[in-house]
Computed example of a mutant assay.
Amino acid sequence: MKEQDINPWQTLSSKKIYDNPWISLTEHQVINPGGGKGIYGEVHFKNLAIGVIVLDDANNTWLVGQYRYPLKAYSWEIPEGGGPENIDPLTSAKRELLEETGIEAISWTEIQRIHLSNSVSDETGIIFLAQDLSFGESNPEESEQLIIRKIPFLEAYEMVLTGEITDSLSVAAILKVKITHFNSL
């Protein structure tokens, strides 16, 4: 075992503070790496975060706009949502893309796995690139009031650079696709 893989934290006790169908919150009494006693709050996500970046033959992509309640702000994002941990993430990605945009894809590539807020949560995000597209009607969930935008991919990239897109799955997906598919542009 490498030195960096050894956990320097000691857990004295743990107590679940909150639980709902999507998240749980646990408070841990700990001794930190410096030897001091303290508490550490941990949010456990009961679903995987799933993101889909769409790319057509003309290098367009699709963004989904919606008001994000926790942020109290509007957000432009790639199509995304939650996927149960016991279901293949690709199945969840296909469902989210179809639900939010009405788009189906033949070609799917997993492009990245990321931790979304590793200082307070264990949430893992899985991002897919969807290509070879067909189009139908979207069917968003009751909690989603969405605006769908088809834009040139490089415009989405500029939105990341200017801070207009701030969602972490979206930023990671757009930057990854820029590096791997458009590096010479």
Score class of each variant (00 low, 15 high):
residue 84 P to L: 14
residue 108 W to M: 08
residue 108 W to F: 09
residue 84 P to C: 06
residue 111 I to W: 06
residue 97 L to A: 10
residue 81 G to Y: 12
residue 117 S to Y: 15
residue 92 S to Q: 05
residue 110 E to M: 14
residue 113 R to Y: 01
residue 120 V to C: 05
residue 105 A to M: 11
residue 109 T to I: 15
residue 103 I to M: 04
residue 111 I to Q: 04
residue 106 I to H: 06
residue 122 D to N: 15
residue 108 W to D: 08
residue 105 A to C: 10
residue 119 S to G: 04
residue 118 N to L: 12
residue 114 I to H: 05
residue 109 T to C: 10
residue 84 P to E: 13
residue 95 R to A: 07
residue 119 S to H: 14
residue 88 D to K: 11
residue 105 A to P: 10
residue 91 T to Y: 12
residue 96 E to C: 03
residue 87 I to A: 06
residue 100 E to L: 01
residue 108 W to P: 02
residue 83 G to H: 09
residue 102 G to Q: 01
residue 102 G to A: 00
residue 90 L to R: 07
residue 82 G to F: 14
residue 96 E to R: 14
residue 95 R to H: 08
residue 81 G to L: 06
residue 89 P to H: 03
residue 100 E to N: 01
residue 123 E to C: 10
residue 123 E to N: 11
residue 109 T to L: 15
residue 93 A to T: 05
residue 115 H to N: 13
residue 85 E to D: 05
residue 88 D to A: 09
residue 108 W to S: 05
residue 81 G to S: 11
residue 81 G to A: 05
residue 120 V to N: 04
residue 104 E to N: 10
residue 81 G to I: 02
residue 112 Q to K: 15
residue 91 T to V: 15
residue 87 I to N: 03
residue 110 E to W: 03
residue 116 L to G: 00
residue 112 Q to H: 04
residue 91 T to P: 00
residue 106 I to E: 13
residue 102 G to R: 02
residue 87 I to W: 04
residue 120 V to S: 08
residue 116 L to V: 06
residue 101 T to C: 06
residue 94 K to Q: 14
residue 94 K to I: 02
residue 123 E to I: 06
residue 106 I to D: 07
